[in-house]
């Protein structure tokens, strides 16, 4: 059974800095059990659909054995070993992923303004440089705008600021929260799916066999 796992730089656990045994060439790393994640419950791994929630420095394909439980944000297994590094995931792609989250959020914010009779704001949002969105928006008068559209724009500003700070995981989170809190977008846009599909496509990952 295969899945994925994001790690911090150097093959370390993101929270506990556990040094995972990494693959060498075509030789997988050693099997590791529960204590690695400082829990007696098991070791965690990520399905394709979970990846956007765990974005970090390095991405690996992992193999699982023993009992495997599906959870909301990942899976829990008795044992895990690291099979190969997903080389396509690097600093540059990571930044691009963040940019894509901001871009989708920008389009949603612009579309919302368009739909609510604010085409000028919409155009302004779409035409300015992404990194400059906060300054551009500060220059416009937002107070007269309908509450939800304004909210989306505020989230967009948050997203841009966090992207500029290089915090990709946070950008992805802001985008997911922003979309989920806008009822107008319900059914029109599934951000976490879009994020997962972006990663799958850019990294050339096979579709999950997980349910």
């Amino acid at each position: 059974m295969f899945a994925y796992r994001f790690l911090a730089r150097g093959g370390l656990g993101a929270v506990n800095q556990f040094k995972w045994p990494l693959p060498e060439g075509s030789t997988p790393g050693a099997w590791v059990g529960p204590q690695a994640d400082t829990t007696t419950l098991g070791v965690y791994a990520q399905r394709l659909s979970d990846l956007p929630y765990w974005v970090h420095d390095e991405l690996y394909r992992v193999e699982l054995r023993g009992t495997v439980h599906a959870l909301s944000l990942g899976v829990l297994a008795s044992e895990m070993r690291f099979v190969e590094r997903v080389d396509g995931w690097n600093e540059s792609l990571r930044r691009d992923f963040g940019k894509s989250c901001v871009e989708r959020l920008r389009q949603c914010a612009a579309a919302t303004h368009d739909e609510h009779g604010e085409p000028l704001i919409a155009r302004c949002l779409m035409e300015c440089d992404v990194g400059e969105i906060p300054q551009v928006l500060a220059a416009t008068d937002m107070t007269r705008h309908e509450a939800v559209g304004n909210l989306l724009v505020q989230y967009l500003i948050d997203a841009v600021n966090v992207q500029n700070a290089g915090l990709t995981a946070s950008v992805a989170h802001v985008a997911r929260v922003a979309i989920s809190e806008c009822p107008q977008l319900a059914g029109k846009h599934h951000e976490e799916l879009a994020q997962s599909q972006w990663l799958q496509h850019r990294l050339g990952l096979p579709s999950d066999t997980w349910q």
Binding site: A14, V15, T39, L41, Y44, S72, L73, L76, L167
Partner: peptide
Amino acid sequence: DQLSAEERLKFEQHLNWCPPCGHYL
């Protein structure tokens, strides 16, 4: 280590996107 597997996962996921809580821990 007294959280359920699901709670623990959510806890760690929060740390993934929230540097201040990482500082708190």
